[in-house]
Amino acid sequence: MYSHILVTVAYEAEKDAAPSLEIAKALLAPGGQITLIHVMEPAPVFALSYLPEGWRDEMHDAIEADMRRMAEGLSGAATVVAEGDAAHEILEHARAQRVDCIVIASHRPGTQNLLLGSTASKVVARAQCAVHVARRPPAR
């Protein structure tokens, strides 16, 4: 059982955080903490002039509100919205907050990442704590 579990949340097609949260709840020690994290990738420089003013803050607030909704009913749950490279930010948060398990979803990758998605594979390779990979069922 783990005392502090970091659950990654991705906002992509077919990426539902519910299975990862169920795994985290099953692995959590009594009195432990679950933190949900989402990493916003920086917008491409060429697109910045086309985006409305305040878009980043609005997106951050919407993601934060959605993750708080996901965390309802979890005692002492926390949420984090970071910006940057997903693997780096996940690993840095885990290190800084002394997380002892990361739960990360992995999609069914293409040929470039035969076993795991690129973010999941980087996290598995570099994490200083346990990592539980939540495999998604194949699309039908």
Results as ranks from 00 to 15, higher is better:
Ala130Leu: 03
Ser75Met: 04
Glu58Ser: 00
Ser106Asn: 01
Tyr11Glu: 13
Ala87Lys: 05
Gly31Gln: 13
Arg140Ser: 12
Glu92Trp: 08
Arg126Gln: 15
Thr35Cys: 09
Arg56Met: 09
Gly76Phe: 00
Val124Tyr: 14
Thr111Met: 11
Glu22Asn: 14
Ala82Phe: 09
Thr35Leu: 08
Pro42Ile: 04
Asp16Gly: 14
Ala17Asp: 07
Ala87Trp: 01
Ala77Gly: 14
Ser75Ala: 14
Val131Trp: 04
Cys129Val: 01
Gly73Val: 08
Leu51Lys: 02
Ala77Ser: 11
Glu53Pro: 00
His93Thr: 05
Arg126Trp: 04
Ala94Pro: 02
Ser49Arg: 03
Val123Lys: 02
Gln33Phe: 00
Thr35Ala: 08
Asp66Tyr: 04
Lys122Trp: 02
Val81Ser: 11
Gly32Val: 06
Met70Pro: 03
Ser106Leu: 04
Gly84Lys: 01
Glu72Val: 12
Ala29Asp: 14
Ala134Cys: 14
Arg108Gln: 09
Leu36His: 10
Glu83Phe: 09
Pro138Arg: 12
Thr79Pro: 01
Gly76Asp: 04
Val81Lys: 09
Arg126Tyr: 11
Ala29Tyr: 08
Thr119Tyr: 02
Ile23Thr: 15
Leu48Cys: 10
His38Ser: 15
Ala24Lys: 10
Met1Pro: 12
Glu58Cys: 00
Leu51Glu: 00
Trp55Asp: 02
Gly73Pro: 04
Cys129Leu: 02
Thr35Phe: 10
His38Asp: 10
His132Lys: 11
Ala18Pro: 09
Ile37Ser: 09
Val123Asp: 03
Phe46Lys: 05
Ala120Ile: 00
Ala13Thr: 12
Arg98Asp: 11
Ser106Val: 06
Gly84Arg: 07
Gln97Arg: 11
Ala120Pro: 02
Arg126Leu: 08
Arg69Thr: 11
Val103Asn: 02
Ser121Ile: 07
Glu53Cys: 01
Gly117Asn: 03
Asn113Asp: 11
Arg95Ile: 02
Glu64Asp: 05
Glu22Asp: 15
Val39Phe: 06
Thr8Asn: 06
Val123Arg: 02
Ala77Cys: 07
Ala62Leu: 01
Glu83Met: 15
Ala77Phe: 12
Lys15Phe: 08
Met40Gln: 14
Ile5Gln: 05
His132Thr: 15
Glu22Cys: 07
Asn113Tyr: 11
Arg136Tyr: 03
Leu74Met: 12
Val81Met: 07
Ala86Tyr: 01
Gly31Leu: 09
Glu83Leu: 01
Ile34Met: 15
Pro109Met: 03
Tyr2Gly: 01
His93Phe: 08
Leu27Met: 13
His88Met: 09
Ser106Thr: 15
Asn113Cys: 07
Thr79Glu: 08
Ala26Asn: 14
Ser118Asp: 04
Met1Leu: 02
Ala17Tyr: 07
Ala65Asn: 11
Lys122Thr: 03
Cys129Tyr: 03
Ile63Gln: 00
Phe46Glu: 13
Ala18Lys: 13
Ser121Asn: 10
Tyr50Trp: 01
Ala127Glu: 12
His93Val: 05
Ile63Leu: 13
Glu83Cys: 13
Glu72Leu: 10
Met59Gln: 08
His93Ala: 00
Ala10Asn: 09
Tyr2Gln: 02
Val7Ser: 02
Leu115Pro: 03
Arg56Leu: 10
Glu41Tyr: 06
Gly117Lys: 00
Gly54Glu: 06
